[in-house]
Design a protein around this nucleic acid. Structure first.
Lengths: 118, 118
DNA sequence: CCCATTGTACGAGGAGAGTCGTAGTACCAG
DNA sequence: CTGGTACTACGACTCTCCTCGTACAATGGG
């Protein structure tokens, strides 16, 4: 069961599944930048490095947003070399709040389409 | 189509359906007090006055939270005499974001049950 | 070993949010 | 008109949040 990619020494604190709070998830997703990150993560691939996102903010701010997402339990982050891989915690969220993530992603997609998207 | 209850002179500003933003809705619901209000509104009746809620904050703060909910498009408020009736904007939210409100309410209910509720 | 790449830590500035208290407004019942 | 009820407005306080810049740490390649 050794993973194909060694998860590097640096560890990142994640909340356990039972510790994820709905309020924190909603707060995390109420920021446009973070909602955008989550949408990209849900759409394209399941594993993207931070630098693969082209956000209109500095690297410091990007780090901050990824941390909020991780600490609220929305995403999972692991190091792989100097890069950091980000993935949605679909399994945990679907178990805790069935249908919520899909409803949120659907709502975000609808709004994007409605407002003449990007 | 005249309503049974005259909506009194005082008018309250509400966002039109198209003006409701997902981020604002999520932000509104990310506060425990407001999530609690919305859950009560969804469960019991569709029309409750502000004073029918027994929240552990002062009246000023209660007013503030109801205003945030109204201005984000989550609830509708109309005066009836000195009282103010509050109702969920189910129709508008379901039209804009199908399934979202139910998913949110379900998630909130699940979390309450899981955490040994009140 | 040096260096480029990737991301972090820390501090700061500015804006916003939750809470309260006090004073005030709008409405209804006498 | 008087009084009571229901809610509001405003200012203040405290915290948190988003953003940035600069300086730093961890990894992998030559």
């Amino acid at each position: 069961m050794t993973p194909a990619i060694a998860p590097s020494s640096r560890a990142l604190p994640h909340p356990a599944r039972e510790e994820i709070r709905l309020e924190s998830v909603l707060h995390a997703l109420s920021d446009p930048m973070r909602l955008r990150i989550v949408r990209e993560l849900a759409g394209d691939a399941d594993e993207l490095t931070c630098s693969q996102f082209d956000l209109p903010v500095t690297k410091s701010t990007t780090t901050h947003h990824f941390r909020v997402l991780r600490e609220s339990g929305v995403i999972r982050q692991i190091y792989r070399g100097t890069a950091k891989l980000n993935g949605l915690r679909r399994d945990d969220l679907d178990d805790l709040f069935p249908g919520l993530l899909d409803a949120l992603l659907g709502a975000a997609a609808r709004q994007s389409a409605r407002l003449g998207e990007g």
